[in-house]
């Protein structure tokens, strides 16, 4: 069972994503900020990280950069309310970019796709 780390500073959204991803059959863990998220990447070794971009303190893009510097194998999905971040070159480094929606289907499907891609790449 793949472990998904959800980093988002909105508790309700964390709960929503946890519920939905668990329902889809993933193991989940959450962090409420980027620093905590990086800690969990080190300690819990998730298979995939979902990063909110705009968070208090370190933002999702910087967190992504740090994660990739340590372990390029961990896929990162940027999940944000700001569709305009798509124009930021740095976001191009992410494995996927999902605009937040009350319909979580896109996020769940993206997680699935990215994990499959990783599995084929490493396998």
């Amino acid at each position: 069972m793949s472990k998904i780390l959800i980093v988002d500073d909105e508790p309700h959204l964390r709960l929503l994503y946890e519920n939905e991803l668990r329902r889809a059959g993933y193991e989940t863990m959450t962090a409420s900020n980027a620093v905590q998220g990086l800690e969990f990447v080190e300690t819990m070794r998730p298979d995939l990280v979902i990063l909110d971009i705009r968070m208090a303190g370190m933002d999702g893009i910087e967190a992504m950069q740090r994660i990739m510097e340590r372990d390029k194998q961990i896929p990162v999905i940027l999940n944000t309310a700001f569709s305009s971040y798509k124009d930021n070159y740095l976001t191009w480094a992410a494995d996927a970019y999902v605009t937040k929606s009350s319909d979580v289907t896109e996020l769940v499907e993206t997680v699935q796709r990215v994990l499959e891609k990783k599995a084929t790449a490493s396998g």
Partner: peptide, 9 residues
Amino acid sequence: VAIGGFARA
């Protein structure tokens, strides 16, 4: 997202 997401649930 929270409202709609939980309503879906």
